[in-house]
């Protein structure tokens, strides 16, 4: 049973948006909607500046409020690998999951009406491929793998660096880890 997770090494992100476009094509995401995004944050005053680049997506939380709040069971956390998924044919489009996610990781597919979000590209995992955003990540900032496998790139990445999760206080226990907040080495 793999335990999938992603590590985002922010130091290596260059805000190129390849992930954003790849994800849309791979998953047929409608125009103006997104499963993943990239934040550019700059603090300070010229010329004392600090930049943080951060890509965000569904955290596949181990304690997922979106799943708890779904009235139909359309949203669920898959037992075998921990990916938070959606049974589209069950979704009523009530948007409770959208409200429940503290990461704003969800949207309602405006062409089809169901709730949607990142699936860790589970259809690609089945074919033995990495998620589309990971495969195309120019900076190798996105790292994907099985937390239970000591040789997986996520484990190796986490061993060598301090990692945090987003909004730890929300108690969601995310499976997407972030390395080194500020891309500029302190």
């Amino acid at each position: 049973m793999p335990k999938y997770a992603m590590v985002i090494d922010q130091r290596r992100c260059v805000a190129c948006m390849a992930c954003v476009v790849a994800c849309k094509n791979e998953n047929d995401v409608p125009p103006e909607q997104y499963r993943t995004r990239v934040l550019e944050m700059v603090e300070g005053e010229f010329p004392q500046l600090r930049m943080e680049l951060r890509s965000e997506l569904c955290n596949h939380c181990d304690n997922p409020p979106c799943v708890y709040n779904c009235p139909t069971g359309a949203s669920y956390k898959r037992k075998e690998d921990g990916i938070v998924l959606l049974r589209k044919n069950r979704c009523v489009g009530c948007k409770a999951c959208v409200a429940a996610c503290p990461y704003d990781a969800r949207y309602i597919n405006h062409e089809k009406g169901f709730a949607d979000k990142c699936t860790f590209c589970e259809h690609r995992l089945k074919e033995g491929k990495e998620p589309a955003c990971v495969a195309t990540c120019i900076g190798k900032s996105r790292i994907f793998g099985d937390m239970d496998d000591p040789k997986s790139p996520v484990r190796i990445a986490l061993q060598n660096s301090d990692a945090t999760v987003l909004l730890e206080g929300a108690g969601t226990r995310p499976r997407v880890y972030y390395i080194k907040k500020f891309s500029k080495p302190e």
């Binding site: 708890y68 709040n69 779904c70 009235p71 139909t72 069971g73 359309a74 044919n89 069950r90 979704c91 009523v92 489009g93 009530c94 948007k95 409770a96 309602i108 089809k112 009406g113 169901f114």
Partner: peptide, 20 residues
């Protein structure tokens, strides 16, 4: 509801953690 035709799913399941 954005997927009105699926509304019957409210009544094919009980989700104990979902107030809705």
């Amino acid at each position: 509801l954005d997927r009105k035709l699926n509304v019957y799913w409210f009544y094919l399941t009980i989700q104990p953690l979902s107030p809705m």
